[in-house]
Simulated scan of single mutants.
Amino acid sequence: MRPLPEGLVDVRQRLVRVMAQKWVNGTVLHYAFRGGPEPQRRAVRSAFQEWLDLGIGLRFQEVEEPGEAEVRIAFDQAGGSWSYLGRDVLGIGTQDPTMNLGWDLTDAYGRTTALHEIGHTMGLPHEHQNPFAGIVWDEQRVYEFFAGAPNNWSRETTHHNVLRKLGPDEVEGSVWDPDSVMQYAFPEGLIQEPERYRPGIEPPGGLSAKDREWVQTFYPALPDVLPALEPFRSTPLTLAPGEQADFEIVPGASRKLQIATFGDADTTLVLFEEVDGELRFLAGDDDGGEERNADVSAKLFRGRRYVVRVRLVWAGRSGDAAIMCW
């Protein structure tokens, strides 16, 4: 859980936690395979495409070199299936996988597995760890079940992936969706309460209606034309928590520019450079929970196109914020 300073108001703390692992909308996530047979790779590509077909603003692009990818996918059949959560992948060494897919992906269960792990990469947590689900576990039986194949998990891993409840300030809302692609299937005997789930939980597989609604809300389709961010001109950010504003910069001269937000607000600020028609990360800052504003600087070159994306996490007493470059 992200450490935050003492004294934050509850609503601010909750918003910072909820969005801690979420990407700025419009980010291009590059993924690369570390081995794996071609049928497995095709299944993963298909799962990425299924998320994309919802019309979201995130993009996924396959690259050959793992060192060029934020998302590195392994197929260790002894390692179970797992993924780091959202922006946590950025803290993983470039030679290490950020996702493992440990069993066959070519059937319906495998397809759901691939969608599930990509959901983690997008920032979605496990649905059964929602604190509002009210699940009471037979913990010993849970440990015994996940210690067996195909997961072969340690007690620590089982606790982290199943038994540990998320804090109320880490979830998107109070509604539990047992049909979610992020919800595990559980056999009879692992759940004690709610009583209706004592025989087990068997989600239908694939993306639920609420999965689609959530991802389209948080990563909406991007506009075709972006407003310009003009030097030395403050631009108001009239955003609600979780909303995002996007701007473009096409410098008239090559020079170092500073870009910053202003006001009593928490924001995530990211600068991209367009290279061969693709936006590549150049700089970023997240001031969530800190008593400062997001601020990045970089040398921008004449005639090139740059895109600035700023997501508002929380607006303070005035509710006002702004962005400027100089």
Rank of each mutant, 00 (worst) to 15 (best):
R59Q: 13
G91S: 14
V63D: 04
L105P: 13
G110Y: 02
D96Y: 10
D96N: 07
E70G: 10
G91C: 06
E70I: 06
G80E: 12
P97V: 01
P97S: 09
H116V: 11
D76S: 06
P97H: 04
E64Q: 12
I92G: 10
P97L: 08
T112Q: 14
A78G: 06
A78C: 03
I92D: 10
L105V: 05
E70F: 04
G80S: 03
A69S: 11
G55M: 13
T98G: 00
T98N: 01
R87V: 13
G102H: 09
G79P: 05
F60S: 03
L101Y: 01
T98E: 00
T112W: 10
G57F: 13
R111L: 07
G93M: 10
G79H: 03
D76L: 08
A74W: 01
T94Q: 14
T106K: 05
Q61E: 15
E117Y: 02
L90G: 02
E65C: 07
A78K: 13
G57P: 06
A74G: 11
I56A: 04
L90M: 10
D76P: 12
M99P: 03
A108I: 12
A108S: 15
G86I: 06
G80H: 11
R87E: 14
L58P: 01
A69Y: 09
G67Q: 13
G80T: 04
G93C: 09
S81Y: 03
A108N: 07
L58S: 07
T98I: 01
F75S: 06
I56N: 06
D104L: 05
R111A: 15
G102T: 09
L101E: 04
